[in-house]
């Protein structure tokens, strides 16, 4: 019974925080909304008995990705400049697309035969240990594991290369931030 209440409260909080994350003009506040959603996701993982993923979610998403986004905000915007309009001109089309997506997903979930089903079997108490072994077993998931490692290394080197240098374009392209200050 406690699990129901936790699930209801956390899901409500997640949806509200997600709305904050996509509507707030202040990007730092939007990021804090995102952090709440990520943390709620970790709580739902605990409810789903995916303990390793819950911890990985907190470490990777909140510990790395959210911090990275905060750093990017600090590097790309003036702190006092963070109150521009939140949406661009054609935002109504985004409402149309998202609304269509919502209707389609609700229709699909309502007609999904296993949507009200119970779990078929309990999770093995040793599941995390078995998962660790399966991740590096040659007849298990060693190929996806290594491909993910190579992808992360490539992304790391690529990100450093892209963010390293580059000159500012002086030409006809308007320098918006300077214009606002002038």
């Amino acid at each position: 019974m406690v699990a129901y209440w936790i699930f209801a409260l956390v899901s409500l909080l997640m949806v509200l925080a997600a709305l904050v994350a996509v509507t707030n003009r202040n990007l730092v506040r939007a990021t804090m909304g995102l952090v709440l959603v990520l943390f709620g996701n970790a709580v739902l993982f605990v409810l789903l008995e995916a303990y390793f993923l819950a911890v990985a979610q907190v470490i990777i998403y909140i510990g790395a990705i959210a911090i990275l986004i905060v750093f990017a905000i600090m590097l790309t915007r003036h702190v006092g400049d963070a109150w521009g309009p939140a949406f661009h001109r054609a935002w109504a089309w985004a409402v149309v697309v998202a609304g269509g997506l919502a209707v389609g997903l609700l229709f699909w979930i309502a007609h999904w035969p296993a949507a009200d089903g119970k779990a078929k079997s309990p999770v093995d108490p040793q599941y995390t240990k078995l998962l660790g072994k399966a991740l590096v077993a040659p007849d298990g998931y060693v190929i996806p594991f290594e491909v993910a490692s190579a992808l992360l290394l490539a992304a790391l080197i690529g990100a450093i290369y892209v963010a390293w240098g580059g000159r500012r374009v002086k030409g006809p392209y308007p320098q918006r931030s300077e214009e606002k200050e002038a």
């Binding site: 997640m14 949806v15 996509v22 789903l48 521009g84 997506l101 919502a102 997903l105 979930i109 009200d116």
Partner: peptide, 26 residues
């Protein structure tokens, strides 16, 4: 908790995220 409840939360987050990705300026 039924599976559909998790799917509902997931669908809500996905739709909100899609709106944000399409409509935001920054």
């Amino acid at each position: 908790i039924p599976l559909g409840a998790y799917l509902m939360v997931s669908a809500a987050l996905f739709v909100i995220g899609a709106f944000g990705a399409l409509a935001r300026k920054s």
